[in-house]
């Protein structure tokens, strides 16, 4: 089991906010390390675009553990959603070398509200 969550189960944040992240794992084998990635990706009609904004590598971890980390969110890009494309921020934990992954989606946008793209009338 590998889990990544935000403390207090908050899912929406302002750019620049500090996020408290809780990582919990109980794996069959002791991992060499756990990576925590903060990043965004797009989904929609076109090919996926993605970027990792911050990566934290946790070495010397135990087989079973729960730790809390703090990450400061960048200024952008904002989470947005339209008919053709959505941009999604997420926290992703990856156990190495097993590759087991856990993901937690968050919203990063002013007012803690995902930007809604609307159709422009021609």
């Amino acid at each position: 089991m590998l889990e990544v969550q935000t403390v207090d189960e908050e899912i929406a944040f302002n750019p620049g906010d500090e996020v408290r992240v809780r990582l919990t794992w109980d794996l069959p084998n002791t991992p060499e390390r756990i990576d925590l990635n903060l990043g965004w990706h797009t989904i929609g009609k076109g090919d996926r675009d993605e970027s990792v904004s911050e990566k934290i590598e946790l070495d010397d971890v135990g087989q079973e553990q729960s730790i809390e980390l703090r990450i400061t969110l960048p200024d952008g890009p904002y989470s947005f959603s339209g008919q053709l494309i959505s941009l999604i921020w997420s926290l992703q934990a990856v156990a190495r070398p097993s590759g087991e992954t856990a993901t937690h989606e968050i919203v990063v946008a002013p007012g803690k509200m995902e930007v809604q793209l609307t159709e422009v009338e021609e």
Partner: peptide, 12 residues
């Protein structure tokens, strides 16, 4: 329908 909900999004 938003892109992230679209069943025909490329990642799906």
């Amino acid at each position: 329908m938003r892109a992230k909900e679209n069943p025909f999004a490329v990642h799906r």
